[in-house]
Computed example of a mutant assay.
Amino acid sequence: MTAQHACDTADLEPGEAMRLDLEAADGTPLPVALVRDEDGEFHAISDICSHGQVNLSDGEVDGCTIECWLHGSTFDLRTGKPLSLPATQPVPVYPVTVDGERVLVDVDTTADVAR
């Protein structure tokens, strides 16, 4: 696992999201939405909505979901699966590790969203 430092825990309050450009394995920037759900857990998903090609990090966090601000699709932060239309395709989800105050994201690995 090649985890990258995304932010410190104090940088993101529960119910907030931020956009990050992390480095993919080939060195290109990868847009990631780092989200802290209302229970304080961190999640990392692709920042690009699978329907509207807009930043999910600009959307509203509700429980363990994030809503795309443009068309209202909601995505499960744990699986990346869309929970409402118009999106029908999941977005990639990346493993997050909290090491002390550091939040680490591994963009080289994606979660199995077929579950």
Rank of each mutant, 00 (worst) to 15 (best):
E101N: 15
V61K: 00
L83C: 15
A33R: 01
V32T: 11
C68A: 12
C7V: 15
G15H: 08
P14F: 06
T109G: 07
L30Y: 01
F75E: 05
D47P: 03
E23C: 08
R78T: 14
L70C: 02
A24Q: 01
V54P: 00
L20M: 08
A111M: 07
C64I: 08
R102M: 08
A6V: 11
L70I: 00
L77N: 01
L22H: 05
T65H: 05
E41H: 11
V113T: 12
T65F: 05
L56G: 04
V107C: 09
P90D: 11
D62I: 04
A25M: 06
T74M: 10
E41W: 04
L20I: 07
E41L: 11
C7R: 13
S57Y: 00
R19V: 01
A33T: 00
P90G: 10
S50F: 01
A3S: 12
P29K: 06
V91Q: 02
E13M: 06
R36W: 04
V32N: 06
A17I: 03
T2I: 10
L30A: 01
H71C: 01
D47H: 03
G15R: 09
D47Q: 07
H71G: 00
C7Q: 13
H51D: 09
E67V: 04
I48C: 02
A33H: 03
T88Q: 13
D21L: 08
H5Y: 12
P92L: 03
V32D: 05
K81Y: 14
Q4V: 09
A87N: 07
G72K: 03
D39S: 14
R115L: 12
V96P: 06
A87G: 10
A17P: 01
V113G: 05
L85S: 09
T9D: 09
T74D: 10
T9K: 15
P31S: 02
D8Y: 04
E16V: 03
M1H: 13
V61C: 04
M1D: 12
R78D: 11
P31Y: 00
P95Y: 06
C49T: 01
G15E: 10
L83F: 11
V105W: 00
K81T: 15
E101Q: 15
G80Y: 06
C64S: 12
A87Q: 07
T9N: 03
A25L: 13
D108W: 01
G72M: 01
A44H: 07
E23D: 08
C64F: 02
L34Q: 08
R19G: 14
E41D: 15
S57V: 02
D99N: 12
R78K: 15
A111G: 03
A25N: 06
D21C: 00
A25K: 11
S84C: 12
A87S: 14
V103K: 09
V61T: 03
E23K: 14
E67G: 04
M1K: 12
G80S: 13
G100V: 09
E23P: 00
V98Q: 13
N55Q: 03
C7A: 15
V105M: 03
V96D: 09
P90W: 10
A87W: 09
D26R: 11
V113N: 13
R36S: 09
E16L: 03
D11Q: 10
V61R: 01
V91F: 02
K81W: 14
S46Q: 11
T2R: 14
E67P: 00
F42W: 10
E60K: 10
L20V: 04
H51W: 08
D99C: 05
T79F: 11
M1S: 14
H51S: 05
